[in-house]
Amino acid sequence: MNRTVNQKAWFLVLPVLVLVAFSAVIPLMTVVNYSVQDSFGNNQFFWAGLEWFEEILTSERVHNALGRQIVFSAIILAIEVPLGILVALSMPKRGFWASLSLVLIALPLLIPWNVVGTIWQIFGRVDIGLLGWTLRNLGVDYNYTQNALDAWITVIVMDVWHWTSLVALLAYAGLQSIPEAYYQAAKIDQASRWSVFRYIELPKMQGVLLIAILLRFMDSFMIYTEPFVVTGGGPGNATTFLSIDLVKMALGQFDLGPAAAFSLMYFLVILLISWVFYTVMVNLDRRGER
């Protein structure tokens, strides 16, 4: 392979490096320093070694939060991905209605996280919220502030409402890239609707769907604002996901050491997923080029 080697362009990245150093690397180093020490405030620290890591690794509280987090991510993926594909399949392909549905579908994505949380927090209230009030008057015993199952349903429905659009838009983009000839060939072969989906549309959407799944998984794995605004992690600890638990530990209890160890492990998991994400995407691109 004859590639010209010229690495001078790397110098152009220096300003970004400086920025990242101040916004990420130095804080991260500080977190590492905190994670091996104990503090009672006043900027006084005492060496603790690997104690906090051990504590977090064996902490039932963290295990429970992790379990809830995985269940949450699994549920929203199981709903959002098929639903997103279904929405994309039923969208018009061209013309005025296609543009209109694209805009409508993209709307939830434009709303800031905390606003989404506030909308659903009010929407679900049994005294003034449309959803909560209606359910209550229909005789459904719904109260997301007291019933754990109701809280879960609310948070999941909220996430589905907020993010299915993303999957739908990506799947739609994948569908749009399929040439008409494929469908014509399928028609000549008298393929059923299911076969068209299974052997033409699904393989062609594979790349974008993978991106959608990884994006949604990572986002839901780090979710904080929406459930925090709606339920505050409650009732009890029912909807306390990893990041909510982390903030409780770091800022609520001011347990800097354990919280630092916790966030480092959380960071490692996210880093691993991001790497897989990046590698898969790069390799898909390469396969596309061939």
């Binding site: 130095i26 180093m29 500080t30 590492v32 320093n33 905190y34 091996v36 020490q37 503090s39 900027n43 620290f45 060496w47």
Partner: peptide
């Protein structure tokens, strides 16, 4: 740099 709460082991690690 005292706010960063450096220790020798972590400094060696990053080094």
């Amino acid at each position: 740099l005292s706010w960063m709460a450096w220790t020798w082991p972590t400094a060696a690690f990053f080094g």
